[in-house]
Design a protein around this nucleic acid. Structure first.
Lengths: 163, 163
DNA sequence: TAACAGAGTTAGACATAGCTAACAATACAG
DNA sequence: CTGTATTGTTAGCTATGTCTAACTCTGTTA
């Protein structure tokens, strides 16, 4: 759903976001290190992203996300985090495995599935301690979209990962 | 985990398996139709798979999986089916969305995650009707690997999708 | 048995995404 | 302000995976 970016473009965009959130300025070298590719690869990718209006990048200068680029990057970031949490906390795989799988899955899932997974994670968080919860309740939570608490309708949740 | 095949090779291998299971003989045209690509693409892919010892394909003849190819193809097929079922029956997305996402996810997940998802699907199948099941129980099923029934240890299940 | 339709292949192009090697710009030391 | 280290870019190559157009095989049928 993200767009016609291809997995690679999405990775670069997300890298720019993550690096800039860490407080550093975003340079070609930083992106290369973050993604484990060479600087020429970054240069090429940035040109392409710039053409698409997703980043600004003056020659030999810093990299910045445009408004559209930031939206996309944030979506990828949310996807990534959600999938990582889902795999670790719901499916129960080790953290590094979850991280690796999340990296690859983030480019591949539909918004509909993502949205459901958000609810699934919320449900498991909210009811981890409950001693008796039926799968029916999980099912209807996934349908209704209110997964933060089961019996009453409290529209309390947040953090959409889709669209 | 499948190997150094790339998503594309895995798709071709799986297509050969699916077509042959449907009772037809497997020709270039059939594979092309099945995957929505052109015949030259199939030709090229088959050469590459033949070089890797995964299919046999005499010029102008039929396509057959080698033993190794069949193993890989069957793994992809199981992955595909599992993910489809997981998305549809556990996550609850519509069938066609599940199908599309499964196609893309099958190339991307680690064996560890796959194995866990197998258990998750088994658990949900086995306990769909139970009125009180705690998430703890789900959690320990995922850990222990016995997800077909919760209280007693009945090692009744089958169908691994990993390794 | 000759011709034709369907199936398969080859050749050549394109897009993506990565690499190395060589070069250019910048920034900082002294 | 000059030189060196860091950073960034360019050029050129590779591999994968797809396409179209043109050609070749094969099998059927009249």
């Amino acid at each position: 759903m993200p767009g016609q970016l291809g997995q690679s473009g999405e990775d670069y965009l997300e890298a720019v976001l993550v690096i800039s959130r860490s407080g550093q300025r975003v340079r070609v070298t930083d992106i290369a290190a973050h993604l484990g590719v060479t600087k020429p690869s970054v240069s090429a990718a940035l040109s392409s992203l710039e053409q698409k209006g997703l980043v600004r990048h003056e020659r030999y200068g810093e990299v910045q996300l445009t408004a559209r680029g930031a939206l996309l990057a944030e979506e990828m970031f949310r996807r990534h985090r959600l999938l990582h949490e889902f795999l670790r906390d719901v499916v129960g795989v080790p953290d590094e495995v979850a991280a690796g799988d999340a990296c690859r899955m983030e480019h591949v899932l539909s918004c509909q599935t993502l949205q459901r997974l958000v609810r699934l994670v919320e449900f498991v968080r909210a009811h981890d301690d409950d001693e008796s919860i039926s799968l029916r309740q999980l099912g209807s939570c996934l349908e209704s979209g209110d997964c933060s608490r089961v019996p009453a309708q409290r529209g309390g949740s947040s953090d959409e990962a889709a669209e």
